[in-house]
Amino acid sequence: MERWDVKIGADGSVDAAAVVDEIRRRAAERLKNGEYDLETLVRAERFNLSALKDNPEFFNGYLSGIHRVTQVDIGDWEIREKHSGLVGKLLIRLKRTIRSLLRFYTFRLWSQQNRANAIFHSSLSLLAERESEDLAKANARIAELERRLAALEKAGRA
C-alpha cells in the first residue's frame, strides 16, 4: 500500500487544502493506472452534474467511460432458485424457457436501444472534441494576437 505524504503539525494542525491536493493527485494517478473501475465510477456520477459542468478534466474522463454503461446488457445471466432438488431444477428450466420466449419480443427492442445509445454517445463525443479543437484554436489565436500586440507596443516605445 502506498504511503500518504500528508503531515500533521507539531501543534496537531493539518493543512486540509494541501491534503485535498494530494487526494486529487492520487485519485488522478489511480484513474490513469486503471486502479478504479471506470464503469463503477461513471454509474456513481449520475447525480454529480455540477462537476460535469465545472470541471473539463472530469467531463473528459466521464465521457470516455460512459460508453461502457450506455449498452444495455442483453446477454444471459445465471438463474438461481431458492428451491433445491427436482422442484428447483424444474423451476430453473421453466424460467429459462420463459426467458427464451421473451427474448423473441425484447431482442429487437434492446438492440435498437443500444444502437440509439451508441449514436448519442458518438455525437456527444464528436461535439466535445470539436469544442476542444475550437477552444484550442481560439486560445492559439489569442496568444498570437497578444504576441503581435506586445511587439507593436515595443516598437512604438522605441
Partner: peptide
C-alpha cells in the same frame, strides 16, 4: 475549520475515504 476534506467526484471520494 481545517476539519475535513472535500471531493469533486467519486474517485476523489474513494481516495479521501481511503486516507
Amino acid at each position: 475549520a481545517g476539519g475535513g476534506l472535500w471531493f469533486r467526484n467519486c474517485s476523489e471520494f474513494i481516495t479521501a475515504l481511503d486516507l
